[in-house]
Simulated scan of single mutants.
Amino acid sequence: MPAGPPGGGGQGGGRHDGQPGHRRPRLRVRAIYEDADAGTVVVLWDGAGVTVTGATYANTYAWFLTFRDGKVVDATAFFDSIAFNDLWRIDVDAVEGAVEP
């Protein structure tokens, strides 16, 4: 069963993705728990990056994934919703020189 956060897991290390001033987010998997009989995987991971305003965004996530026939059929994610909401409130159009994703 596959397990891990998007981007392949591990440490992103802030590698450059080719966009000026744009860095990939860093990911660190803390723990992976698997219940093979139930087809369930729980992944606890941290993600961090820099917004278009230069502010740091960091969050800790817990993903509960249910697999059937090698595919995710159900997923639930927990995270710090206040930090996440602050990230989504950034008005990219108002930031001069912002890099489009």
Score class of each variant (00 low, 15 high):
Thr56Pro: 11
Leu44Ile: 06
Phe64Leu: 13
Thr40Ala: 04
Thr66Asn: 09
Gly7His: 04
Asp37Ser: 11
Val41Leu: 03
Gly12Cys: 07
Ala77Tyr: 07
Pro5Trp: 00
Ile82Ala: 15
Val41Cys: 03
Leu44Ser: 06
Gly18Phe: 02
Val95Ile: 15
Phe78Lys: 10
Glu34His: 08
Arg24Thr: 06
Asp35Met: 06
Asp80Lys: 10
Phe67Asn: 08
Asp91Phe: 13
Leu27Tyr: 08
Ala55Pro: 06
Pro2Cys: 00
Leu44Ala: 10
Trp45Ala: 09
Leu65Phe: 11
Ala38Trp: 00
Ala77Phe: 01
Gly13Ser: 04
Phe78Cys: 13
Asp17Arg: 04
Thr40Trp: 02
Asp74Thr: 09
Ala58Arg: 09
Gly47Leu: 05
Ala48Gly: 10
Gly13Cys: 03
Pro2Asp: 08
Pro101Met: 08
Asp37Val: 13
Arg15Asp: 03
Pro6Leu: 02
Gly14His: 07
Gly54Cys: 07
Ala48Asn: 07
Gly9Ile: 00
Arg15Ser: 03
Gly97Ala: 06
Gly7Gln: 03
Val72Thr: 15
Arg30Val: 09
Gly12Arg: 05
Phe79His: 14
Leu27Ile: 11
Arg30Gly: 00
Glu100Arg: 14
Gly8His: 01
Val95Lys: 06
Trp45Tyr: 14
Tyr61Val: 14
Ala62Ile: 11
Tyr57Ser: 11
Ala55Asn: 12
Arg68Ser: 14
Asp46His: 10
Pro20Glu: 04
Val43Thr: 15
Gly13Ile: 04
Ile90Phe: 09
